[in-house]
Design a protein around this nucleic acid. Structure first.
Lengths: 213, 213
DNA sequence: GAGGTCGCTAAGCGCTCGCTCACCCTTGCC
DNA sequence: GGCAAGGGTGAGCGAGCGCTTAGCGACCTC
């Protein structure tokens, strides 16, 4: 279940759960295409071509093009939520848990940029019922981060006048990494994760911000 | 030139420079449609319909659908750059200028969310030469923010180990407001602007962060 | 080796897309 | 009034879209 494979590049591949091999190849091709061009600019012929199949093969494994996006979005959000939960429910202080959560969340958005892009920016391309499901997952993501911040405020480690707004800002900062991160750029996902963990600790007024490098 | 009109809602309307009246109406309709559905999911029939014209009228004023996006993107980026420049070249301390820059930049992204969404998220829908032009404008935006941060580091007001990375994070934080801001939500653009200015001052280690409410 | 099933393909249907073209109505100038 | 110019329309072209269907070959079962 939680045994996700990792490549040398560090990109997590949680697609092992997509079971017929052809269905997984199609889904991977769709992730690439959606991330490059966007959902609406991607054709079913393009997806099938990338997977080395004819256009009709897509409809054996998926009912519509939108079902592909829905599957990608749900699996991606579940993975993101899993990452945050692991960090949020760890054993350290709120400061340590927030730094963990931010750095791992950012690593996922940077390292798995293609997946994260689709997951975070194609929500509006889903139909109403599929979008409602994904919005529910996002609320859980939000609640995990807010929980850590509230813990830190309770213990006195953090100084946060606006918990709700700060939660929003922290998540927004992490998510937007998927928009600008460049694999061929000067920074690794790990470096961005460390930098962002430090910046977020500063945002919440953590007392040892900056001393964790 | 710089006499942009403002509505009661606070949304800046810098489209006065688009001269034939019909051309401006079409451009405004396109901004709305692109922001709602995305560039690729918007049809020329939809744009013309919103402007109260027949589909063919669009091609009297614009050569292609892409030219519409290009015009919107250029005007929007120039406005954003103008806002940042005004704040960056003000008279106060780096702390005051950074707070000004962030709060006004965020107000623009929140208040003019429809425009900002198109400007910030449809870059990849442009062709190569148009995209190159816009990327140049973005570099200037980046340079303005980096300039303020470098000033603060020089005067000792800021404590920033990684100026380049922090600049990226600050801009990213502001830009992503256009993705999640909801006009019917609980916060006004002004409130978000103030909150974000405080958060950014904390990120750069400004000495009076939080004392500016 | 006959028959059923499954994964896949070639061909193409119905539709909508971006865009064009022949033509019209209003306006201003002589 | 004649008439050129320019903003606008209705109809429609060629192309490409998402998706369907008839059929084919490889494989399992008996």
């Amino acid at each position: 279940m939680s045994t996700a494979e990792e490549t040398a590049g560090g990109e997590v591949q949680p697609w092992a759960e997509v079971t017929p091999d052809a269905a997984r190849r199609l889904l991977l091709a769709a992730v690439e295409a959606f991330a490059e061009r966007g959902y609406h600019a991607t054709t079913t012929r393009d997806i099938a071509g990338r997977a080395g199949m004819s256009p009709a093969a897509l409809y054996i494994h998926y009912k519509t093009k939108e079902e592909l996006l829905h599957r990608i979005s749900r699996i991606g959000h579940e993975k993101a939520l899993d990452i945050l939960r692991t960090a949020a429910r760890g054993e350290g202080s709120p400061t340590e848990r927030l730094a963990d959560a931010v750095s791992s969340f950012v690593r996922w958005h940077a390292g798995g940029r293609t997946t994260a892009r689709v997951v975070q920016y194609e929500l509006d391309s889903l139909g109403p019922e599929a979008r409602a499901e994904i919005v529910g997952l996002r609320k859980q993501v939000n609640a995990e981060v807010r929980g850590i911040i509230e813990d830190g405020v309770r213990t006195g480690e953090f100084d946060v006048p606006d918990v709700h707004g700060t939660t929003l800002a922290v998540l927004s900062l992490c998510i937007d990494v998927a928009r600008w991160f460049n694999v061929n750029g000067p920074r690794t996902p790990e470096e961005i994760g460390d930098l962002y963990a430090d910046l977020v600790l500063r945002m919440v007024g953590a007392k040892d911000a900056g001393s964790r490098s």
